[in-house]
Design a protein around this nucleic acid. Structure first.
Lengths: 344, 344
DNA sequence: TTGCCGATAGGAAACGTTTACTGTAGGCTG
DNA sequence: CAGCCTACAGTAAACGTTTCCTATCGGCAA
């Protein structure tokens, strides 16, 4: 693999000059010399060494994205958003699936730091874990001391995200929509309490109920995981409780998909007997039957804005936090409640 | 951000010694000295500079994975497989969604090469594009000259994948299963012809039909894209053709999901009137209604094996290509054909 | 004519590691 | 007791860039 030294020799110029043309630095080089260097580079199939360059600049054009699991459609959309924005600037993106394991998360951040990544973007919700928080704080300081950026895309231990979404407003809006349809008994399949974004969505549920003058029956909010399996378990728990509800709002589309499937298995029609709504609007939401009503979040844009924010941070700008809008999209899984509730 | 020089000074040793302990090199260092270095490193929150290290070794512990789109469940599973295997070895993975655009693909490979990535893994199917093939060949040479590995996870222009799956066998097996159920008129929703893996699956379809003594009616194989939208368009095209078929085999689960949805919209029951089968077994395949029958591919393992292969290649071993097995999984979207075909 | 300036080019230091060499000291072999 | 080997430590070169300086050369203002 040829280096700039060979390019310079072949072009008959100094390394400094060769560097200036291949790095496209703003420094005068005569057209003739420039052409010779370019020609030499082409002939030698020269590809600049990003490591050497990064060593110089103490930063490399790479951004890391910490996600829960790249296999989860929410996160893959966000990553795609980051990637598209990053590609335009010549940046590469490193995907880190932490499975919400604090140790894995810290280990990834450390690796990213060792690479002198330009930025690390936390796409997943923060976890309420004091030990992790402390270690991360140290890494953030290191990252920033190095001119790197740290951007959060969802709430975390120490504060609000630099670029966020309307978790609470979105949930409240969906409750409102359900109430408009005539629902009074709305169950909520909540996510684990230690996830910050889950707290916001739950707060939105409560706010929405309150705004409608409805009292929330605590037996109708059950906490489970965040995947489809949690959806089926949640439905079972709710049904075992024997409580009646005509609508089921889930903290995530994945959960909603699991819930719908379980409901169907049990012979409960959706939306005939129970309406189901999700959150996020992953692409599969409109491929199920019935198609899922949900609160759409601009996932790709979230990633793109997150990257843009990171770039601005690196450029030394001071920025205000921004929040991206939600949109409630009503499809076929929600409908007015039946005259007799699903269960009495 | 502190460097090894500062660690060495604080520990009162030379940088050589400090390097040897922090890099965990196999070189004798007295326990007392080692302890002092470690203590200094901890106190200074020292994080080794991977760029400097990489510059030395002319390679950095990072692997790139080229996919069509990280948002496609097939690819996110593969990437996750690579990531899990990579993490164990201290490697980071860079995700590159090329959208099957030759220019984007080449540009990503070039970037990866400039970073001196240890390996690049092509997860997506190769595209039959002479110009791209030529440029890629040059990059491969450069990568390999540098001690890097190149691994393909699906067929490509110049040959068979280092780690592959049974596209043809899997398709043939599904056809066999459908025939066992009693189907004779089996339509195939094929993918674009310039995709190598698509050719294999199509070949499997033909082989399966032939093995069953069935003639394939060319009007029953229609070529469309690879996403859900292609599934709906494909169904429309097939139906417009007016041909009768009792089963529809799709080249991908995503396509099958789209097809099922379209069939349902048109009031055609699945599997009552038409059986539908997909390929891959993405996680959503069992969350649809009816749950999708499909040919399961070990996607995560594919990624993990791909990484392992790359590591072995870097270690200088010569390896044989390996092929991972498929498994046909029959769920609810397939059933024996009705006595009267869906369309006559 | 003198002196300064802009355009262009090269020299060399610096970025933070790893590692081939070179030392040194103590212990063991014979 | 001579010679050698092992364990341990340090020096310095090298990896491939970028960039701060310095240098040269016309041209132009004074």
């Amino acid at each position: 693999m040829s280096s700039i030294t060979e390019v310079a020799r072949r072009a008959g110029v100094s390394i400094a000059t060769a560097s200036r043309v291949v790095a496209e630095v703003d420094y005068p080089v005569s057209p003739a010399t420039r052409a010779r260097v370019l020609e030499a580079a082409r002939a030698l199939d020269y590809v600049p060494n990003a490591l050497a360059r990064g060593l110089q600049k103490s930063r490399i054009p790479v951004v890391g994205v910490i996600v829960h699991d790249i296999t989860d459609p929410y996160f893959s959309e966000v990553v795609r958003g980051v990637e598209d924005a990053a590609a335009k600037g010549g940046y590469l993106v490193i995907t880190c699936s932490s499975d919400r394991d604090p140790r894995r998360e810290a280990s990834y951040v450390r690796l990213l730091r060792s690479m002198r990544a330009s930025a690390v973007i936390f796409a997943g919700s923060g976890i309420d874990d004091p030990e992790l928080t402390e270690e991360l704080a140290r890494h953030f300081a290191g990252l920033r001391a190095n001119g790197g950026a740290v951007v959060h895309l969802s709430p975390y231990a120490d504060g609000t995200p630099e670029v966020g979404v309307q978790n609470e407003d979105g949930a409240a809006a969906m409750i409102d929509a359900l109430v408009q349809m005539g629902h009074h008994q709305i169950a909520y399949l909540a996510a684990p309490r230690q996830l910050f974004f889950a707290r916001e969505r739950l707060a939105g549920y409560r706010r929405g109920m309150k705004a409608a003058g409805l009292e929330v029956d605590e037996r109708l909010v059950v906490h489970r995981g965040l995947d489809a399996a949690a959806g089926v378990k949640g439905v079972d728990a709710l049904l075992d409780g024997g409580m009646g509800f005509t609508a089921l709002f889930c903290s995530t589309d994945l959960v909603a998909l699991g819930a719908m499937r379980r409901l169907r298995e049990l012979g409960i029609s959706v939306p005939g007997q129970v309406s189901v709504a999700g959150f996020d609007d992953i692409s599969f939401a409109e491929m199920t039957s019935p198609r899922l009503s949900t609160v759409r979040l601009p996932m790709r844009e979230l990633g793109a804005r997150g990257f843009a924010h990171a770039v601005n941070l690196m450029a030394g700008k001071t920025l205000m936090a921004e929040t991206l809008p939600h949109e409630v999209v009503l499809r076929d899984s929600t409908a007015p409640p039946p005259h007799t509730p699903a269960r009495s």
